[in-house]
Amino acid sequence: MEMTFFRASVLAALFFLTACDSSTPVAKVETPAATVLEGKTMGTFWRVSIMNVDKDRASELRDKIQSQLDADDQLLTTYKNDSALMRFNLSNSTSPWPVNPAMADIITESLRVGYKTNGAMDITVGPLVNLWGFGPAKQPLREPDQAQIDDARARTGLQHLTVINQYGQQYLQKDIPDLYVDLSTVGEGFAADHLAKLMSQEGIARYLVSVGGALVSRGTNASDKPWRVAIQKPTDQQEAVQAIVDINGHGISTSGSYRNYYELDGKRISHVIDPQTGRPIEHKLVSVTVVAPTALEADAWDTGLMVLGTEKAKEVVRQEGLAVYMIFKEGEGFKTWMSPQFQSYLVSEKN
């Protein structure tokens, strides 16, 4: 499978349930009354479950979904130099750069969450992502030295990026020529929200959509019950369920450090990079799930909280009143923590 820019956070982190049975890492509909459409995008998989459509209508919808996701990828990917994002990244101009409203909205939300997490969620961290081999560049043969890390960090920082709205036109502006924006932390959430919008435009009132580990639901499933989502245990066993939640028309996203990594000199290198140190995280927090009004918002928060680590993340969750479920390593096992806001979505929790 070609990995485009969404290599980072939540590949196979969540999967759907229509009952309390476990299923595949993306989606498995247990009743023939539901139609499942699926495909590949952004280096991961998309899946849409909908009700009461015939074969011709399903084929038409699938084509529209894939076309929209292809356009989203062309907007946001860092794996294609002609994408809208990469044209901005590769430009040395520090003048306002015109972008479409979708790009402006994604970056505005990312900056908002970035500042709320004290820079832990940083979409300008691209030079560090690339340095550690989680972007278009190949994995390094040896761990980057401090001079390389310092050089990359000097080209990052939320303060260097601004969104401008002037006379109905949106612009991005960077104040250092080689600023490099990487939207891999929020792209799946944006695409999931975009799919949900498409379903509504197409008159579909009951659906569950996913792009990677970002999901959005509306209405009920084929059994007239709420769509339920299973949060995976932090293990390579893809069907191991930690908790089951009813997202009730919201967006949900998970960031985990236990899936996307590589081994270097006998050390596990996580894809989650701490902008403050310039290095992959090494703390004991291994999974963060966020429920929010949109998948984009959930996708932004889960990354920032993941970078912060357990205790600092709890502080931000309490301060912002977020619906969050965390799994962290303790001794030889794992423990969980959830905010009061998350408890209203919880259906059951596994030992």
Rank of each mutant, 00 (worst) to 15 (best):
A104D: 03
D302V: 10
K350P: 00
T310Y: 08
W97C: 01
I244Y: 05
A240M: 11
L179A: 06
A71R: 11
V129C: 08
S287G: 07
Q319H: 15
G114L: 00
E297R: 02
G168S: 08
G321R: 15
R268G: 07
R142I: 11
A19C: 08
D122G: 03
V181I: 00
S200K: 14
P234N: 11
S22H: 13
G219W: 01
V290I: 08
E332G: 12
M306R: 06
H271V: 02
T94N: 15
I327Q: 11
L308K: 14
I106E: 03
R153Q: 12
A300S: 15
Y79H: 13
M42A: 12
A27E: 02
I252H: 09
H283R: 09
P293Q: 12
M1V: 14
A147S: 15
L308P: 06
N248L: 08
E263P: 05
G135M: 04
A196I: 05
V347D: 00
G331P: 07
F88L: 02
A196N: 03
N351L: 11
E188V: 14
K350R: 11
A191C: 10
V163L: 03
V316C: 10
D175C: 13
L90S: 08
G168N: 03
V216H: 03
A196Y: 00
A191E: 04
I176G: 11
G189N: 02
K350I: 06
K350T: 13
T220R: 12
T336C: 09
R268K: 14
R7T: 09
A300T: 11
M1K: 11
I252F: 06
A19G: 10
L179M: 04
A292I: 00
S9K: 13
D70T: 11
M86V: 02
A191S: 15
A214N: 03
Q173N: 09
Q242M: 06
T18Q: 04
I244L: 07
W337G: 08
K80F: 12
S210M: 09
F190R: 10
Q148N: 10
I273A: 10
N221L: 04
P25W: 05
K284M: 11
V347I: 15
K64P: 06
Q148K: 14
T303I: 05
V347M: 04
R228C: 10
L305C: 14
I50G: 01
A230L: 07
V186C: 00
E143A: 15
L14A: 09
S257V: 00
M306F: 06
A323C: 13
M42C: 10
I123D: 02
A152W: 05
S255V: 01
S49F: 01
G157E: 06
A243K: 03
K284D: 15
V113T: 05
L141W: 08
L183V: 01
D224C: 10
T303E: 03
I327M: 10
N118Q: 14
S67Q: 14
I231V: 06
S59D: 07
L90F: 09
Q238N: 11
L161C: 01
R318Q: 15
S22E: 07
Q74N: 14
V290L: 07
F45T: 12
Y171G: 01
V163W: 01
F45M: 15
